[in-house]
Design a protein around this nucleic acid. Structure first.
Length: 257
DNA sequence: ATGGCGGCTCGCAGCCGA
């Protein structure tokens, strides 16, 4: 079973890349972020024609999330239940016995902004939500763009980034609190390689110079971690013309059944 | 090194992302 996550930065623009990538890599489950599409404009037909079931929640211009799966998707839940949010950043569903939670964590803009306070509040709400979900779902994975580089090794120049947004102690603490619920960052299950990133700025030839951050993550319960065989960031789509600034991340599981 | 890039919009400039 192969699970993946990809911030596509506009599904309208990136649909050809996505369809090519699905055909090439054949992931079983794909979580998408920043679709930037109203639900009425979601490319449902193209994705089902590619052999995937899909659930989605979007809005105009910003945000928007979706889950694609080879298997039927059941019990879809949009947003964080009981927590009001006008921004479409979370969708969850069950497929092939695994609870999938797709997240697009707020960016935060700068640590002294209102948007940063929203980011921290959002993390608290997500944590409370997942705490309950974990009680009933031993096979659960949280995939998405977390907008947090958990450690200095996840930043091409930790000194330059300092305590700013994406690397601040407050955000790293929020991320750690999430893991403390009983989730593993699947990247940490394997040998780490220096310079492993999932996002590169469009500017400054950042991708060519590997000036990136590891901010897209796949978190898994202990039951899933035990069958996790591989973690990978696929840099190929980042090399295409008009790429997303994020590359897809994949994990492979050896599951019974 | 946040500016350069690239997405979006009742667009032609400004907001937002990371």
């Amino acid at each position: 079973m192969k699970l993946s996550t990809w911030n596509v930065n506009s599904l309208k623009v990136r649909l050809p890349h996505l369809l090519d990538w699905l055909s090439l890599r054949q992931p079983d489950v794909v979580c998408l972020q920043e679709t930037k599409l109203e639900d009425s404009k979601f490319p449902y037909d193209a994705i089902t024609a590619a052999g995937y079931h899909v659930v989605f929640s979007g809005q105009k211009t910003y945000n928007g999330v979706a889950i694609l799966s080879r298997w039927p998707l059941q019990d879809a839940v949009v947003g964080i239940p009981g927590w009001e949010d006008t921004q479409q950043r979370v969708i969850a569903a069950s497929t092939n016995g695994v609870r999938i939670v797709c997240v697009y964590v707020p960016n935060g803009q700068s640590t002294d902004s209102d948007k940063f306070q929203y980011k921290l509040a959002w993390f608290r709400a997500l944590t409370a939500y997942l705490e309950k979900e974990l009680l009933r779902c031993p096979h659960l994975a949280v995939l998405g763009d977390f907008n947090v580089a958990p450690a200095d090794d996840d930043v091409y120049d930790a000194v330059a980034w300092g305590d700013g947004v994406l690397t601040s102690p407050a955000e790293r603490s929020a991320f750690d609190v999430l893991l403390a619920l009983g989730l593993h960052d699947s990247y940490g299950l394997f040998q780490k390689t220096a310079g492993t990133y999932t996002w590169w700025d469009y500017r400054m030839a950042a991708f060519r110079r590997n000036m990136g951050l590891r901010i897209d993550h796949i978190l898994v319960t202990p039951a899933l971690a035990g069958s996790c065989m591989a973690w990978e960031v696929d840099k190929m789509p980042r090399k295409l013309e008009r790429p997303s600034d994020h590359a897809p991340v994949l994990v492979t599981f050896k599951l019974i059944g």
